[in-house]
Design a binder for these strands. Structure first.
Lengths: 204, 204
DNA sequence: CCTATTCGGAAATGGTCGTTCCCAAATAGG
DNA sequence: CCTATTTGGGAACGACCATTTCCGAATAGG
């Protein structure tokens, strides 16, 4: 139903020979590593394994490819995070897993590749309303989830009630985004794990 | 002595009619708002008030303009931050001022403009060694300053001795960079100030 | 004052960009 | 089986990019 889910059967015509989501996954890597402007259509056709003509039949223009990549990136990462959160017992545990999830992503190859949300915020937010809106919605959802987990922790007794969920959620979100920024130039895995522990002080 | 300090008197020839630092200040705004690739030479000549030919007499190429802008940005911001830190009494106070300095920068017009270091990390770090090195050095210096202030606080009794300066410094730096990321899409001033308070929990 | 040197600025250049066009190939419906 | 429709893919397109060139103007040294 969304941009890249189960392909609604076409009424007629030659069927598409490439998988849209698989192609977008490769576009995500390219856009994450180089940013929007430095990733040319040539680069995209090569990385996605799709000729320019075919690309423009699947997407209106380059920006549409980017926005579809962004949406898929968000969807995939969100599902992974929620699977991780689901394994947590208490609100505090779930928050710990959330921070650790970002710390993990900030390391190694994925860390150097960078977060597409942050890249979009940096490169496009100020000039492109469509990109800005998606970044805002991403931030809002992340913040809302953190607030929810904080309240859950306060309800189950794993987090004291005197902390302010909204401010703490915003602070945690900043910390997690900052880890992704640092990951672009390499983050020491050992230190990253310790930072997760330090971050949990915000819940005291 | 550096890229854009006191202009060493030229031996002969027509003197430069524009001020290098003032022109770089305008380039900084452009690069911060649009990023490296989206800021064209046309944009730069217009913003800097210098024709293309003259620009290429002052700088080897576009990347040199960018790196000079980056260096000046770092210098200016660093001086402002150190002036702010100098007003602090204790180590804890100085750290509070440091976090507040970033929180302030993340708000309003400057927040939407973004941090050139973070923009460079996002857009160029993975593909351009020169840019990556500067980002790394910037992070290292920021971290070193935080470690220094933490140790100062531990020495003057404003910060307890059981915290680990290195991990705490890294965590604070992530938090401050995260605030700048959030500032690209707008950060509520009231909440930003509260986040500074929340961040200080990392020192307990 | 004359010459070497540098700057200012507009025009020119080659390359690459995003996008479109075109035609052969592949499907669905009648 | 024929037609309408869609895709694949390469060639073609105009626009804009970073950079260079060129020439008049402005300075310093001799």
């Amino acid at each position: 139903m969304s941009t890249a889910s189960a392909t609604a059967a076409p009424r007629a015509g030659r069927p598409r020979e490439f998988n849209l989501d698989a192609a977008l996954d490769r576009a995500i890597v390219l856009f994450s590593e180089r940013g929007y402007h430095a990733a040319s259509i040539s680069d995209l056709t090569e990385a996605m394994g799709v000729a320019a003509g075919s690309l423009y039949k699947a997407f209106k223009d380059k920006k549409a490819i980017f926005l579809a990549s962004f949406d898929r990136y968000k969807q995939v990462r969100m599902e992974l995070l929620e699977a991780e959160i689901a394994q947590g017992r208490t609100g505090r545990d779930k928050l710990h897993r959330t921070v650790a999830f970002y710390a993990q992503a900030a390391q190694g190859e994925m860390g150097r590749r960078g977060c597409l949300v942050i890249g979009t915020a940096s490169e496009l937010a100020i000039n492109d309303p469509d990109a800005a809106e998606r970044v805002c919605r991403s931030h809002a959802r992340s913040e809302a989830r953190l607030v929810e987990l904080l309240r859950e922790g306060q309800a189950d007794g794993s987090i004291r009630t005197h902390i302010e969920p909204l401010v703490t959620a915003k602070t945690l979100l900043c910390l997690m985004h900052g880890m992704r920024v640092m990951g672009k130039t390499g983050l020491d895995p050992g230190q990253a794990d310790k930072m997760v522990g330090a971050a949990m002080k915000l819940l005291d």
